[in-house]
Nucleic acid binder design. Structure first.
Length: 519
RNA sequence: GGCCCUAUCGUCUAUCGGUAGGACACCAGGUUCUCAUCCUGGUAAGAGGGGUUCGACUCCCCUUAGGGCUACCA
C-alpha cells in the first residue's frame, strides 16, 4: 500500500452551515497531502442527519473551498449554479447512497456483527441516567441482542421502529492503530459502545456511512480532526466486520480559543467567510491556518508561504500532536504582510467592495458625481497607494483618514502651530506652501514622489532660513502646519501624501482656509 | 465519573541525547513634521517528581494541568 500514486484523501463535511476555519485546515491538509504525493482529493458530503440540514450550506461550502484555492479533483461541483458530480465512485452525497448502506448492513446482520434494537428512547435515557448515577460509563446494555430470531422477525413484521447496532465483543481486547500523527493509539473494546449504525429513519450514522464510503471510494488516508480519535476503534471494528482493508489514519490537533478550549463561535469568529468579510485575504487565511499545527521543520523560519510552496513542503509526519490557539494578532500581522505585497492594481480590485461598504466613501461619491469613472478610480488608487503600508485588513480602508473623503475639516487654529511657533510664523510657512503648490504644474500632482521632493526641499529651505547654525533641523516648522491644514488632524500620513490623494484644487483650498483661520 | 489525547517564551513554533533558535505580541531605541511603515535591541519557555544515560527539552514511569469523546450529531 506504499504506492503513492494511489493516494486518495477526502474532506467530508456535513452541510450544516458555514465552513469553519478548522474545516478549512482539514480540507487544506488533505489537499496538500494529495498534491504533494500525487493522487486524488475528493469532496464528499455527509448529510445523514436530516435534522441538521441547512439550505444553501452545500453551495456555500463548495463555493468557499473553491475560492480559497483548495480545489478537489473528484466529488461535488457547481457548474453554472447546477450541482454536478464528477468521479467514478459516486454518488458523493450520502443521502443518495442509502441502498448501499442497507446492503452492507444486511451483511453485518447475517454475520452477527450487528443486531436489531427496539429499545425506546425513554429506556435508553433511563439506562444512561442509572449508569451515570453509578458513575459508570454510559453504554448500551445489549438488551436486544438476546432477543430471539423469531421475536425480532415478529416485531419487524409489525413495523416497530428499530435501529441497527454494532455488536462489540467486550472480550476482544485492545483495538490498536498507528496514527500518522500520534503514533500508536489503543482503546479497549470494553470501553466501546454498541454504536448505532442505522437510525430508525433508515439513514446510516456517520460511523457506518463513513467507513463504507471511504472503502468504496478507495480512500487511502483518513485525515480528520482529533475529535474523531475515540471513535476510530469503532470504525476499525466495522472495517473488520465487513472485511475491508484499513486505511491510514491521521488525527489533526484541534484549533483552540485563547482559553484553550475547542475553537468555538462563542469566543469569536470561526467561519472562513467572517474573516473574508473583514478583509482578510484568502492567501493569508490559507497560509495562517496551514501553520497552525504544522510547519516544514528542519530549522525552517519561513512564515510566508504560497500554496505551491505549501504543497511542495507538506509532510504529514511534521503535523503536531497538540492543539493550536488561533491567534488573531498574528493573523493580523500576516494579513498586513500580504497586503503590502499586493500590486496596486490587485489591491484595488480586492478593495473595491470594502470601499462601497463605507458610509464616508458613499458620501464622497455623492459629493463628487461630476467625476468620470476613471477619475474616481484614480482617487481610490491614490488612497490605496498611501494606505497600503498601514492596512491590517481591507475593511480598515479610510478608517483612519477621514480627511481624504470630506471637504469640511473642523479643528482649532492653534493646532496649526508647530511646537512653540506663533501664528505669524505658521502663516509664513503656509504661504510658502501655498505658492509652491499653486505653481506646481497639474501633471506633477499625479506623481507622489515629485510632491514629496518639492515639499521636502522647501521644508529644508524653510528650516535653513530660520536656523542658520541649526540648518537641516526643524522641517516641522514647515511640514506640520501644512499637514494640519490639509487634514485637520494630529495624526495622519505626510502632507505630500495627503496632497497627492486629495489633489491640487482641494489642497490649495484647504491651505487658504487655514490661512483664513489664522486671521 | 469513564476512556483517550496532549504538555518548549503570553501565542505559533525550531531543536528528533550534547548547554533552547525564529515569528507574533509586548517594551526600549533609531529614522521622522505627527501617525503608520521601516531598522536595531530587549524581556520572556522546556509543568513537577522519579528513573535510563557520561549527559535529557528530547527516551520510560508517576503526578499535575489542559483538551477531546462519552447521542438514533457529525
Amino acid at each position: 500500500m506504499s504506492d503513492t500514486k494511489n493516494v486518495r484523501a477526502r474532506f467530508a463535511p456535513s452541510p450544516t452551515g458555514q465552513l469553519h476555519v478548522g474545516g478549512l485546515r482539514t480540507a487544506l491538509y488533505n489537499y496538500l497531502l494529495v498534491k504533494n504525493l500525487g493522487g486524488s482529493y475528493i469532496l464528499r458530503i455527509e448529510d445523514t442527519d436530516q435534522n441538521r440540514f441547512v439550505p444553501g450550506a452545500l453551495e456555500n461550502l463548495i463555493h468557499i473551498l473553491d475560492e480559497m484555492g483548495v480545489h478537489h479533483d473528484e466529488g461535488l461541483f457547481f457548474d453554472n449554479d447546477v450541482l454536478i458530480q464528477k468521479g467514478n465512485y459516486g454518488p458523493y452525497i450520502q443521502s443518495e447512497r442509502l441502498p448501499l448502506y442497507r446492503e452492507y448492513v444486511e451483511k453485518l446482520l447475517e454475520t452477527g456483527k450487528a443486531y436489531h434494537c427496539f429499545c425506546s428512547m425513554t429506556r435508553l435515557t433511563t439506562l444512561r441516567e442509572e449508569q451515570t448515577q453509578k458513575k459508570m460509563a454510559p453504554k448500551y446494555d445489549k438488551y436486544c441482542l438476546s432477543l430471539s430470531h423469531e421475536e425480532v422477525e415478529e416485531r419487524l413484521a409489525s413495523h416497530e421502529p428499530y435501529v441497527i447496532r454494532l455488536n462489540v465483543d467486550e472480550a476482544r481486547g485492545e483495538i490498536v492503530f498507528d496514527d500518522l500523527v500520534r503514533g500508536r493509539v489503543s482503546i479497549h473494546t470494553k470501553d466501546i459502545d454498541d454504536q448505532v449504525l442505522m437510525k430508525s429513519d433508515g439513514f446510516p450514522t456517520y460511523h457506518l456511512a463513513n467507513v463504507i464510503d471511504d472503502h468504496l471510494m478507495k480512500i487511502s488516508h483518513v485525515i480528520r480532526g482529533e475529535e474523531w480519535i475515540s471513535s476510530t476503534p469503532k470504525h476499525i471494528l466495522i472495517y473488520e466486520a465487513l472485511e475491508f482493508p484499513l486505511p491510514k489514519f491521521a488525527h489533526l490537533p484541534l484549533l483552540l480559543n485563547p482559553d484553550k478550549s475547542k475553537l468555538s463561535k462563542r469566543q469569536g469568529d470561526v467561519a472562513v467567510e467572517d474573516y473574508l468579510v473583514k478583509g482578510y485575504l484568502k492567501e493569508t487565511l490559507v497560509n495562517f491556518v496551514a501553520l497552525l499545527g504544522w510547519n516544514p521543520g528542519a530549522g525552517s523560519t519561513q512564515e510566508i508561504f504560497t500554496l505551491d510552496e505549501l504543497i511542495e513542503k507538506f509532510d504529514i509526519s511534521q503535523i503536531h500532536k497538540s492543539g493550536a490557539v488561533f491567534d488573531i494578532k498574528k493573523l493580523d500581522w500576516m494579513n498586513a504582510e500580504y497586503i503590502k505585497r499586493l500590486s496596486l492594481d490587485v489591491l484595488y480590485e480586492q478593495a473595491l467592495p470594502f470601499f462601497s461598504d463605507k458610509e464616508f466613501f458613499r458620501a464622497w461619491e455623492e459629493n463628487h458625481q461630476q467625476l468620470t469613472a476613471d477619475e474616481k478610480k484614480d482617487f481610490m488608487k491614490r488612497v490605496l497607494e498611501i494606505e497600503q503600508d498601514r492596512l491590517v485588513k481591507l475593511s480598515d480602508i479610510g478608517e483612519n483618514n477621514p480627511f481624504f473623503f470630506t471637504d469640511t475639516l473642523t479643528y482649532e487654529s492653534a493646532l496649526l502651530n508647530w511646537k512653540e511657533n506663533t501664528p505669524s510664523q505658521t502663516k509664513e510657512a503656509l504661504e510658502k506652501a501655498l505658492t509652491i503648490l499653486t505653481d506646481l504644474a497639474d501633471e506633477k500632482w499625479q506623481m507622489r514622489e515629485v510632491l514629496e521632493k518639492v515639499l521636502m526641499e522647501e521644508a529644508e529651505n524653510h528650516a535653513k532660513s530660520l536656523g542658520g547654525a541649526e540648518a537641516g533641523k526643524g522641517k516641522g516648522d514647515f511640514l506640520w502646519p501644512l499637514r494640519v491644514a490639509l487634514t485637520g488632524a494630529q495624526r495622519s500620513p505626510s502632507p505630500f501624501d495627503v496632497a497627492f490623494v486629495i489633489g491640487k484644487t482641494e489642497s490649495i483650498r484647504r491651505i487658504a482656509l487655514a490661512l483664513q483661520k489664522l486671521g
